[in-house]
């Protein structure tokens, strides 16, 4: 049922090191997420023109969510092809739903 993973010690060390490096990457990602958040909040507080701010903060949110998915939730790792496919299926249905409820409710 489960493949026995009796790894060679050198291989094990290599994997551990890789994870350590990845952990550093994740801290950088986290810092970026905090910076994005601060940018979003300060743009709104600075009362910059609505038509400019709204698209920018939505893009920043989307990028931040991408960081969450790919780095924090490991969607970049292999073995996540199908989860990614089904998750994006959900995103597709979600997109249509939101679009319709924004555009096709009041007229």
């Amino acid at each position: 049922m489960a493949e026995k993973s009796s790894l060679h010690p050198a291989q094990l060390d290599y994997e551990r090191q890789k994870r350590k490096d990845e952990m550093k990457q994740q801290v950088v990602t986290f810092a970026l997420m905090i910076i994005f958040t601060i940018i979003s909040f300060s743009m709104v507080i600075a009362e910059i023109d609505k038509l400019f701010v709204i698209p920018v903060i939505i893009v920043l949110a989307a990028v931040q969510v991408g960081f969450q998915l790919y780095y924090f939730m490991h969607m970049s790792h292999k073995g996540h092809e199908l989860p990614a496919f089904m998750f994006y299926g959900g995103v597709f249905a979600a997109f249509l739903t939101i679009l319709a409820l924004i555009a096709l409710v009041w007229w």
């Binding site: 998750f87 959900g90 249905a93 739903t97």
Partner: peptide
Amino acid sequence: LEGKNKFIGFWFFLGGETVLFASLFGTYLA
């Protein structure tokens, strides 16, 4: 195998949760 099933199944579930929250966001935006 149980772990693999849980892993895949939970990701699928999150795909469904996305639609759930999209419906709520859409309603809010309307």
